[in-house]
Design a protein around this nucleic acid. Sequence first.
RNA 1: GGUUCCGUAGCUCAGUGGAUAGAGCAACAGCCUUCUAAGCUGUGGGUCGCGCGUUCGAAUCGCGCCGGAAUCACCA
Length: 590
Amino acid sequence: MLNEILTHHALEALRVLYGQEAAGDDLQIQKTRKEFEGDLTLVVFPYTRLSRKSPEDTGRQMGDYLLEHAGVFCRYNVVKGFLNLVVQDSWWLEYLEQNGGEYRPSGDVEPSRILIEFSSPNTNKPLHLGHIRNNLLGWSVSRILEAAGHEVYRVNLVNDRGIHICKSMLAWKRWGQGLTPEQCGKKGDHLVGDFYVLFDRHYKEEIATLVAEGMNEEEAARQAPLIQEAQAMLKAWEEGDEEVRNLWQMMNAWVYSGFEETYKRLGISFHKTYYESDTYLYGKELVGEGLKRGLLFQKEDGSVWIDLTDEGLDEKLLLRADGTSVYMTQDLGTAELRYAGYHPDRMVYVVGNEQNYHFDVLKKVLKRLEKNSATAIYHLSYGMVELPHGKMKSREGTVVDADALMDEMETTAREMTESLGKTAGSGAEEAQQLYRTVGLGALKYFILKVDPEKNMLFNPVESVDFDGNTGPFIQYTHARISSLMRKAEGIRVERKKEAVTMLPEEREVLILCHDADAVLKKAAAGMSPAHIANYLYELARAYNTFYQKIPVLKEEDADLRSFRLELSALCGRILKYYLDLLGIEAPERM
RNA sequence: GGUUCCGUAGCUCAGUGGAUAGAGCAACAGCCUUCUAAGCUGUGGGUCGCGCGUUCGAAUCGCGCCGGAAUCACCA
């Protein structure tokens, strides 16, 4: 709001003072640095050409004009080419009054309909740390887009069929002896994952045996009895073999109940879940249609390809010689199905950056097939989560399991809380809830504060802290404000505006609160929760500085006390609202 | 080799055309008889990978190098 006022009057100043027109986008407005007095700073270097005066003189002339006409500034100072403007106390008090109710972002964007796909797990193993980044990003981005005023649909595409699924099915059939999750007390996704690992172990042994008998490795990998049997199983599945289908349904059901638990714990949900087994055939129709129209071509063996060499890419396979589909075929199908179902302006795919090339190709193929979904697709690419020893490899046992990680976070939160002696006065259930909230808050914040595009390092032993720039720090600030509010019940009084003079620490909090809308806009435009996270930290820190230095309830002057309470309340509401955008809960006490 | 992304303090990360480049962690020194110390204040720590260019102004934009990651599968 301040930015708009300043922009409007600064342009006017340029017109009146120098007879020059400038565009609003050219104005450079920023928060005044702490070492100078002011709330907003206008960079006047660019206008020295228009004014034909020194930066200092230009700044002073514009400052005088703004003081007189904008009606919100009370002082200014010019340092080199920087015009630092001080907002009147009365304007801030007015602002506080207008934002006294529940916090709502301004949301002045062109609303659009957005479909966002994330999570997209395979049903052959439990979720791990990589999925956690995916899930948290997808969830948070969808919440940010909603808050910014868009219509958002969250969808999940479960990869529930394929050779990898058959591997765990086969292993269970062979060595499982009818074991169920109920019998062994294990989550279904973990149990199925165990058999997937078991398959791999036996498969490797078979290969080693064949190699020892003189076969080369590549051939052995193809000839091993286990893999052949798995392939036969996949074929039987595709032909609708009843026994295989039943086994498949039973084991997938185990996995889904396991996933359900993990999703619930992570606090995420979807509007719709697609299953690849339902949609994987549709892509073939698209390919067939494209072939008929001469947009694709067929090789001698009958496989279907697209030639993207004129776009700087290669020839890409779209259908195997035996008529079965590949990854790309399926994605073509789901893209079109979804587009037809929702008619979204944008279809966002939250998928790791290892698939940048795949999405590049996907867009180009759809474009070549003259499909509308081509322009709607947006790949929200994010970096890998690396461990101190390198990348996560499921086969080498270096994955960080999602459920185990959450357990660990809760345990750490409990130990931390107990060592701080903060458990007194709350029931066991309430305490458990707090450990969950704080532990997950730490994990979510740690992951979301990093720019999605960048790879990040996760050290299981020391990465997730509870001090400093962390989730618990922000949650703590919120709890602290909540405590103030509880104690303030009934002692609030009407205040007289003219009786309040603000201190720098108070102005700092106010200007950050005022910044909230702009931050949300930026986060929505860039689909980056990191902006929200870093903003939250700044706001919480500014509030803590204020809180530590300036009395609120203990202030004897009733007008000042009320003002500081209102300021605290607004800050608390914003912290809560923005934490929610990250999927983090804001506890009332901790 | 082609393409894409990344390189900022010992470590983890902000900052993406403006002022003397910022936080946290780790280290050190202070602050709880006072509204929640998961907090606050201070000290030390930098060739923003290297070079050239554009600009009144470059960590930020362009070009070239160096280093790292991903990808270029009839796996998904």
